[in-house]
């Protein structure tokens, strides 16, 4: 067996529910930190930024699953739904912290969504993720049919591109870290481009 096959065999023993269980820990830990002073003088911003970044990181990981399989043969495809839904849940928490703890005022929330480009873009990313989260179950897959379901789930690509741009725009200056995450998203999206020749060259087993 190749190393990839070994890894795949080990992964087969992992149940998907374990991911959901472990996923509860980071936000619970962050919330506890925020309440107990561990996130510093401004726990609202601390919680908002950390949970948002965590969500982006998990979603980028979900985007890396297909290229990972193509280039290494290691397949996490069985966990992609869990990883994606966890990422979405973190982003939802990020949104809730922003709504309820940060901005607080309903009229200002709406004004921010309409007037502030980085918030408009962030909300756009979230809205694009809603139908994806809603159809990330077996029943929806059967109802829609594989082709239509797959077409719908290509919304992941613009959603994550917008999320990456949102993260860059939050800063007052060009932060190398934010730019690196955006570059990562764009690179992972580039793997999806239908470039047959390019694919053939990198596909496993290609000469």
């Amino acid at each position: 067996m190749s190393p990839a096959q070994h890894i795949n065999a080990a992964l087969r023993r992992l149940p998907a529910w374990l991911f959901y269980l472990v996923a509860v820990l980071p936000p619970a830990w962050l919330f506890w930190q925020a309440v107990s002073g561990g996130l510093g003088a401004d726990p609202v911003k601390g919680l908002e930024l950390r949970i948002g970044k965590l969500g982006l990181q998990v979603l980028v990981a979900s985007l890396a699953i297909t290229p990972l399989r193509r280039f290494t043969g290691v397949s996490l495809i069985r966990f992609r739904r869990a990883i994606s839904l966890i990422g979405f849940a973190y982003i939802f928490l990020h949104l809730l912290v922003w709504l309820l703890l940060d901005v607080q005022i309903a009229s200002q929330i709406w004004a921010d969504i309409l007037k502030r480009p980085y918030i408009t873009i962030g909300m756009g990313a979230f809205v694009l993720m809603l139908p994806l989260a809603a159809t990330s179950n077996g029943l929806s897959l059967r109802r829609l049919g594989a082709a239509r379901w797959r077409a719908l789930h290509r919304l992941t690509y613009p959603a994550l591109a917008l999320a990456g741009v949102h993260y860059v725009m939050v800063g007052k200056v060009w932060r190398p870290e934010a730019l690196a995450w955006l570059a990562g998203v764009l690179l992972l999206l580039a793997f999806r481009l239908p470039l047959a020749k390019w694919r053939a060259r990198f596909a496993p087993g290609a000469s």
């Binding site: 003088a41 401004d42 726990p43 200002q108 004004a111 921010d112 725009m169």
Partner: peptide, 14 residues
């Protein structure tokens, strides 16, 4: 990129 109408006083907690 954001409103200046209100502010969050640091030190007030979560």
């Amino acid at each position: 990129r954001w409103s200046q109408a209100t502010e969050r006083r640091i030190g007030g907690g979560l």
